[in-house]
């Protein structure tokens, strides 16, 4: 019976590790000299690797953008569900604004001064709601 230490997989792993160790012991000059012999074109051999690096960066960038886009979409949909169709009553407006402020993702869009609702005039409350509608944080009541 083949022991685990002598299995083909272990043998292959050990050999691979040893060969990689040898690479670390190879000087830069030798690596370049080997590459000239091993690859048809040295510049292409290097740029192949750099291209993989570029592709990886682009792939991660696209993935991040998509995640952000999805998160914005989710946030908009969530706000839309909770927003009233049209706000004309000041008490209702203050309540709506307070609910929005209490949401962590929305607070970032509102200035610190506006968090103290009691200090705001009725007109300020309507203005902030209007601004938020224009920013897309909540839907326009008329739509």
């Amino acid at each position: 019976m083949t022991s685990k230490m002598n299995s083909p997989r272990k043998k292959l792993d050990r050999l691979a590790d040893k060969l990689i160790d040898d690479l670390y012991e190879t000087s830069d000059e030798e690596i370049m000299s080997e590459a000239k012999e091993d690859y048809a074109d040295l510049n292409t051999a290097v740029s192949d690797v750099k291209n993989i690096w570029q592709f990886a960066q682009q792939a991660i960038g696209k993935r991040r953008l998509q995640t952000t886009k999805d998160s914005f979409k989710k946030e908009r949909e969530s706000t839309r569900k909770e927003a009233p169709s049209k706000v004309t009553d000041i008490n209702e407006a203050r309540l709506l604004l307070r609910n929005l402020i209490n949401k962590t993702d929305i607070t970032e869009k509102i200035t610190l001064a506006a968090r103290n609702l009691d200090d705001l005039s009725d007109q300020d409350v309507f203005n902030i709601l209007k601004d938020l509608q224009e920013l897309g944080a909540i839907p326009n009541g008329d739509s």
């Binding site: 792993d13 691979a16 690596i31 370049m32 590459a35 051999a45 690797v49 750099k50």
Partner: peptide, 19 residues
């Protein structure tokens, strides 16, 4: 990374790929 480093990475990758 410099050119010899990129080449070293390529060589290391091909050894791991064979595993």
């Amino acid at each position: 990374l410099r050119d010899p480093d990129w080449l070293k990475l390529r060589k290391i990758a091909s050894i791991h790929a064979s595993r």
